[in-house]
Structures are given as structure tokens and as C-alpha cells.
């Protein structure tokens, strides 16, 4: 974005997935993998399922899904799924949080942790190269912002809300940063940053942000996702 340009440029993120060559057969190997793989792999396994647009179930990540479905260890799966990616502003901290779930299990329940995946059911550590690209949507004011927000993809929304947390200024979503810095809409920015994206499906999150923006615009709130 040019320095003099105060418009909001909606971008989106595309991922190209790669194998890391690492697999896990049990909780110990999962833990060792979480400790060893590149940060991009931690990002991949904790973030790609968040891009599902609809409300399918509770939020989760690939580690939790595998522990639940393959190792049949519901208590550990529940704790892994409860690691809230929105709370961690660096992948290093997120990695630590995931490892911290597994460490006590490996120490206190070596038997439970010994359950192995069958052939073909191993956890395959993947990673992704992320390409962020422009979209045709640009907003100069709150009305245009609302119009664009209805049209952009779920991936674009995800990019500006979740991925933004890991970019400077750390811990802030792009919308709040722009609303506050360029439109001086501090209260609205604050309200949006207080929304817990981890508790919403992406479409529900879009609807909540639109609701806040429309309220500020003083307009009637249209149907969510319309």
C-alpha cells in the first residue's frame, strides 16, 4: 500500500502444501515432531481447518483430529483442540503451547501414550508455502469497507484476521489496525478486535464484523452473509 494512500486493500492468501518427510505413529512421535518441524508446519496444521466457511463443529486442529480419530485419546485431543491459536502471537509460542499439552501426558501416562497408529494411519507432517496476493476489492471509507467485506472470500477474511496476528503489529487484526489508524474509528476497531474469531465459523465472523460496521454506519443490519 502506498504511504499516502489510506485505502484498505483486501488481499488473500493461497497455500501450496508440501511434505516434510516426517511422520508420527504415537503421541511421543507427535510430540517430537511438533518440537522439530519448521514453524510453517505448525502454522499449517493449526490454521488450515479454520478456513472452513461454515459451522461444522468445535474449532480444532490437525493434531487434535488425529489424536481423536486414530489414537482414540479423547482427553488429549480435547486439550489439543482447546489450544486457541488466536491467543498466540508467534508460532514459537503456539508450538510451546501444543508441546505443553503433550509433555505431562508422556510423563504421567506412558501406557496411554503408547497407543500406535495402524499402517497408513500415521500422522503426516505437512508444511505450506504461503502466497499472499491482491484481490480486486479496495475500500476508502466505512461504507466501501462494508461492501467489500460482503464480497471477499473466506480466505481473505482469514488472512486479515488470523494471519494478521502473526505479522507486525503483532496481535492486531488488519481491519482494526486500519479502522483505528486511517479512519480514526477507534471504538469500532476495539469492538472488532474483541470478537473471538476462534469461537466463530468464518461466515459467522464475517456476519459479526458486518453487524458492528453497519451499526456504526447507522444502517439496518442486513441478513448475515447475504
Amino acid at each position: 500500500m502506498p504511504k499516502s494512500d489510506r485505502s484498505f486493500y483486501f488481499r488473500t492468501e493461497l497455500a501450496l502444501v508440501f511434505m516434510t518427510g516426517r511422520k508420527a505413529h504415537d503421541l511421543r512421535e507427535l510430540y517430537e515432531g511438533i518440537r522439530a518441524v519448521p514453524e510453517a508446519s505448525i502454522y499449517h496444521h493449526t490454521h488450515h481447518s479454520l478456513q472452513w466457511p461454515g459451522d461444522l463443529s468445535e474449532p480444532t486442529n490437525d493434531f487434535a483430529d488425529w489424536v481423536r480419530q486414530v489414537l482414540k485419546n479423547e482427553p488429549v485431543a480435547e486439550k489439543l483442540a482447546a489450544v486457541d491459536v488466536y491467543r498466540y502471537h508467534t508460532l514459537k509460542d503456539l508450538r510451546e503451547a501444543l508441546a505443553a499439552v503433550l509433555e505431562p501426558v508422556l510423563e504421567s501416562e506412558p501406557k496411554g501414550a503408547a497407543r500406535e497408529a495402524g499402517s497408513g494411519e500415521e500422522f503426516v507432517f505437512l508444511t505450506s508455502s504461503l502466497y499472499n496476493i491482491p484481490t480486486p476489492y479496495t475500500a476508502k471509507d466505512l461504507r466501501e469497507f462494508s461492501d467489500c467485506l460482503r464480497k471477499v472470500s473466506v480466505q481473505s477474511l482469514y488472512y486479515h484476521i488470523f494471519e494478521a496476528l502473526l505479522r507486525p503489529p503483532l496481535g492486531t487484526n488488519d481491519f482494526s489496525d486500519w479502522l483505528s489508524g486511517c479512519l480514526d474509528e477507534r471504538e469500532l476497531a476495539e469492538r472488532i478486535s474483541r470478537l473471538d474469531p476462534y469461537s466463530h465459523s468464518m461466515e459467522a465472523l464475517r456476519a459479526r464484523i458486518l453487524e458492528e460496521v453497519e451499526r456504526r454506519l447507522g444502517a439496518t443490519v442486513p441478513d448475515a452473509g447475504s
Binding site: 501450496l16 519448521p38 508444511t127 504461503l130 502466497y131 499472499n132 496476493i133 491482491p134
Partner: peptide, 20 residues
């Protein structure tokens, strides 16, 4: 189609995070 295009771009612009 999108993934193939991205793959070809990745051969020319490799990296974990690339801004195009």
C-alpha cells in the same frame, strides 16, 4: 488449476511466505 499455477510460480519464487 490454481494450485498448478501456484506450483509454477513457486519454482520461480520459492519461500515460506511470498507476497506477490
Amino acid at each position: 488449476l490454481r494450485d498448478y499455477l501456484l506450483l509454477f510460480i513457486s519454482l520461480e519464487s520459492p519461500g515460506d511466505q511470498v507476497s506477490l
